[in-house]
């Protein structure tokens, strides 16, 4: 995953609370291999009419080039499906700006280079107010921690470790393997002090509750 520090792009407002991951990507699309691209599935059932054609007045259809999503409270609540983030990333999004995020969604976002930018409700309104009919150009600066839309510059909060990760595009597995010795020591200590943690061989216990 590539790191980034600044992003200039088009912002689009989706002023709805509780956009959950089932809406971000309905479950029926999740057996698709990532290589086929998940952008087509983003907010699929909100974006499309029953006939299958696109809703002309849905914000994301009006601004198909958007890369910054300005959304309502509790964005990405619900399931842990990282596919919700893949759908956003594959559709070209680099950031979601909202007053709050589902915990699992936010960490999945950072793992894929997507910024979950936390702003206050008041600042969210300021940003939305700067947009022209729901869209407009915007600039994000990760290090400075601000987003500019029109004449408004508002700060966003982001955990420092997440900021560093987004900027460096780090892969956690590589980082973690540097701590291999510490992990091995923890494992050995646990084995010594709490051997019960390791699963019993399956056939040592008589099975219960009607199993064979």
């Amino acid at each position: 995953m590539a790191g980034w520090t600044e992003h200039q792009g088009q912002a689009v407002a989706l002023p709805v609370h509780n956009i959950d991951t089932d809406q971000l990507i309905p479950a029926r699309f999740m057996s698709t291999p990532r290589s086929e691209g998940y952008g087509q599935f983003l907010l699929h059932d909100l974006r499309h009419l029953e006939s299958g054609s696109k809703c002309p007045d849905f914000p994301l259809n009006q601004f198909p080039q958007a890369s910054i999503l300005i959304a309502g409270r509790n964005f990405g609540s619900g399931s842990s499906r990282e596919a919700a983030v893949y759908a956003l990333v594959d559709a070209g999004f680099r950031a979601v700006v909202a007053p709050s995020f589902g915990d699992i969604f936010a960490s999945n976002a950072v793992n894929n280079g997507l910024l979950p930018a936390l702003v206050s409700e008041a600042d969210l309104e300021r940003l939305t107010g700067e947009l022209n009919e729901g869209g407009g150009s915007a600039h994000i600066h990760l290090e400075h921690g601000h987003i500019i839309v029109g004449g408004s510059k508002v700060p966003f909060s982001l955990d420092n470790s997440w900021r560093t990760k987004l900027i460096n595009g780090w892969d956690d597995i590589d980082l973690t393997l540097q701590h291999e010795l510490a992990i091995e020591k923890h494992k050995q200590d646990r084995r010594t002090t709490s051997s019960w943690v390791w699963p019993n061989a399956e056939d040592q216990n008589s099975q219960v509750n009607g199993s064979q």
Partner: peptide, 20 residues
């Protein structure tokens, strides 16, 4: 606690998870 696919891959590879 539930984790996303990147974290699942991390646990598979290292048996650990980063968490605040």
């Amino acid at each position: 606690f539930g984790i996303g696919a990147t974290e699942v891959a991390h646990v598979l590879a290292t048996q650990t998870v980063w968490q605040k």
